[in-house]
């Protein structure tokens, strides 16, 4: 069983100033599966996601207590370089943030800063990853164009390709489709389904339907607490908690 757990969170509490944002979070996230963190807006899902690769380090007044074990390494209390830990997790945010450079350089950025500069290999990688996210055909003739000229949907796919290019084991996605048009959303969802099995994917969403479409495993949060966590099958067909049942019926949102 333990081999199938990638991330193990124990007694995680997070405060911003005096506000208690995450309360006693205890969850296990399965390896190479797609886990959805589900819950209404403001329940702390995004904060939980950002705690996983310690982007919470960037926010003033944030205090984190507890343990997050990734492959048995407690990333909250580690001597390991935080940059190395982050590199292992690709991030897809709500809004795409392409880097201020051209498309080619966006995809190769992660490779270049880790010292890989062989042009032939880089070219190869760019084609490989852009194909993987279904963007290659749209941009192959304009790789030297600025990434900011792409549409939002294309930018989001570029960000995914850029994240994959550093060869992470985990993909963190924070409502990755909420700013996108329906077709781009579908593309991203399909890509997640295709990658599933190769990566540990964690998707934050407030959309029940999206969760139903993509999840293997569901963590349901409400007001900073984890209410229920289970396999998608069990979660949707046989919810245990009252709150979950209400949410699934759409009583609150």
């Amino acid at each position: 069983m333990d081999n199938d757990i990638k991330i193990n969170i124990k007694d995680l509490n997070l405060f911003i100033g005096n506000k208690h944002i995450l309360k006693n979070i205890n969850i296990s996230i399965p390896n190479k599966k797609l886990t959805v963190i589900l819950g209404p807006s403001g329940c702390g899902k995004t904060t939980l996601l950002k705690t996983l690769n310690r982007l919470t380090d960037l926010y003033p007044e944030v205090k984190v207590k507890g343990n997050i074990f990734i492959d048995n390494e407690d990333i909250l209390h580690t001597n390991k370089n935080i940059t190395e830990i982050r590199k292992n997790m690709g991030l897809l945010s709500q809004q795409p943030y392409p880097l201020p450079m051209n498309i080619f350089r966006n995809v190769t950025y992660g490779l270049r800063i880790s010292g890989r500069r062989n042009r032939k290999i880089l070219k190869n990688r760019v084609e490989h990853y852009l194909k993987q996210v279904n963007l290659w055909d749209e941009v192959k003739d304009r790789l030297k164009d600025s990434a900011s000229q792409l549409s939002i949907g294309q930018q989001q796919r570029l960000c995914l390709a850029r994240g994959l290019a550093v060869d992470p084991e985990i993909i963190l996605a924070d409502e990755p489709t909420s700013a996108l048009d329906p077709i781009s959303s579908q593309t991203i969802e399909n890509e997640f389904l295709t990658f599933n099995g190769n990566y540990t994917i964690i998707v934050v969403t407030h959309s029940l339907r999206q969760a139903k479409r993509i999840a293997d495993y569901v963590i349901f949060m409400y007001l900073g607490e984890v209410i229920e966590q289970n396999s998608a099958d069990e979660f949707f067909n046989n919810p245990k908690e009252e709150k979950t049942k209400e949410y699934l019926k759409g009583i609150f949102n």
Partner: peptide
């Protein structure tokens, strides 16, 4: 979000400063 994106790709803060924010 741009800083988060850069850090997630494995840049250090200084790389984020001079390669991303500067540009």
């Amino acid at each position: 979000g741009l800083m988060e994106a850069s850090l997630s790709l494995g840049s250090t803060r200084s790389e984020t400063a001079y390669k991303i924010f500067f540009k």
